[in-house]
Simulated scan of single mutants.
Amino acid sequence: MAVQQVRGVIAPGKDQPVEVRTVLVPDPGPGEAVVKVQACGVCHTDLHYKQGGISDDYPFLLGHEAAGVVESVGEGVTDVAPGDFVVLNWRAVCGQCRACLRGRPWYCFDTHNAQQRMTLEDGTELSPALGIGAFAEKTLVASGQCTKVDPAVAPEVAGLLGCGVMAGIGAAINTGNVGRGDSVAVIGCGGVGDAAVMGSRLAGAAKIIAVDIDQRKLDTAVKLGATHTVNSRETDPVEAIRELTGGFGADVVIEAVGRPETYKQAFYARDLAGTVVLVGVPTPEMRLDLPLLDVFGRGGSLKSSWYGDCLPSRDFPMLVDLHLQGRLDLGAFVTETIALDEVEQAFDRMHQGDVLRSVVVF
């Protein structure tokens, strides 16, 4: 079987600087596709991989928020063809598990990736981030990880739907069921939180309260649709959210940080029978302590949102269309475009809160 040599960004070991190395990409096997990557966002999840926060299956081929063009497909692939412009996703639904068969494919319990592994030149197998590995000129994925969208959209914008932006918009629309006239609070205004603000606006929320400790992030949230802001470094966010909602709390509170402290704030900042959505990713050692009587007495629902409960085949094309119609400004998330060998510096800027998204453009 033929292989192609491409350049890719590798995380060689825990907390080590990333390296640009030669990656060998095999021809696609049954159910697989090779995609020529055009753009890939630098997501916090890539930093988690680099730091060892997800697994110790080094070396990792980083990058997963990507868009590009299908170059070749393996045997039996009918959903995409060479030349298709696609957004990559890390939840290729199986169609066969109990969730899929019950008509809830966004909960698919058996999502899949490419069977073959990409390697370094010495044969070392690479672990692709979220089963994608798109900080590379080309990558091998399962064909179900490719979602066709309108090729009129810019790749650096489309790729962001592959992870963070979809997670945030979906947390509001799919998981939180934000509706017309609702009040929404979003705690944590990074890329995912800001996308939740944008999703709430799209859904017709009347009041969207952005909460963060960084004034720059709050200013950005206002540009994306927040009607009110709370700097939780200076103000108790629970009291502030209640004050802004007639003393009751918000109908939906979206926690986009992933910490017990901010989750408790979300829990107490919602109205009776309101909804809490956890879309921020916690670390394994975190624990939550809540009075069970409060969980019972306040009613409503406590939900987790995995990838915004999205169904890529349904949601990606719709959001791209809304963007092309000028109704969803996905371009607002792109702070800068960078080259492949600037990923390490992009992690530094992310760490300092200087960017919403850096996007590698090929």
Rank of each mutant, 00 (worst) to 15 (best):
A81M: 14
L88H: 01
G76N: 14
A81C: 12
P82F: 08
Y107I: 09
V86A: 04
S72G: 01
N89F: 05
V77Y: 09
W90S: 00
V69Q: 04
V87E: 04
G83Y: 13
E75P: 02
G76K: 14
D79H: 15
G74Y: 08
V87P: 02
D84W: 10
W106F: 14
A99D: 10
R102Y: 10
P82C: 08
D84I: 06
S72C: 00
F85S: 02
C94N: 05
P82N: 11
R98I: 07
T78Y: 11
V86C: 01
F85Y: 07
R98G: 05
A81P: 12
R102Q: 15
V86F: 03
V86G: 01
V87Q: 02
L101Y: 08
P105A: 10
S72N: 09
E71Y: 04
N89Y: 05
V87M: 02
V77K: 10
C97T: 05
R102D: 15
V86R: 01
Y107R: 12
V80Q: 10
A81Y: 12
P105W: 12
V80D: 11
G76F: 14
V87W: 10
N89C: 06
G95P: 04
E75Q: 15
D84L: 08
G76A: 12
C94I: 03
V69G: 00
E75W: 14
T78W: 12
C97E: 06
V69R: 02
R104P: 01
P82Q: 10
C97M: 08
V69K: 04
C97K: 01
R91W: 05
R102N: 15
A99W: 03
R91F: 04
C97D: 08
V87A: 00
C94K: 04
F85T: 01
L88Q: 03
V87I: 13
E75H: 15
V69F: 04
G83Q: 13
R102T: 15
V77P: 09
R91S: 00
T78L: 13
E71D: 12
V93M: 03
R91V: 06
E71T: 03
E75G: 10
A99R: 06
R98F: 13
V86N: 00
C94D: 07
E71S: 05
C100Y: 01
E75F: 12
C97V: 00
R104G: 05
S72Y: 06
P105L: 09
R104M: 09
E75T: 15
R91N: 04
G76Y: 14
D79Y: 11
P82S: 08
V93S: 03
V93H: 03
R102W: 09
V77Q: 09
G74Q: 07
W90N: 06
P105Y: 11
S72T: 10
G76D: 14
G95Y: 08
C94F: 02
C94V: 02
P105E: 14
D79I: 14
L88W: 03
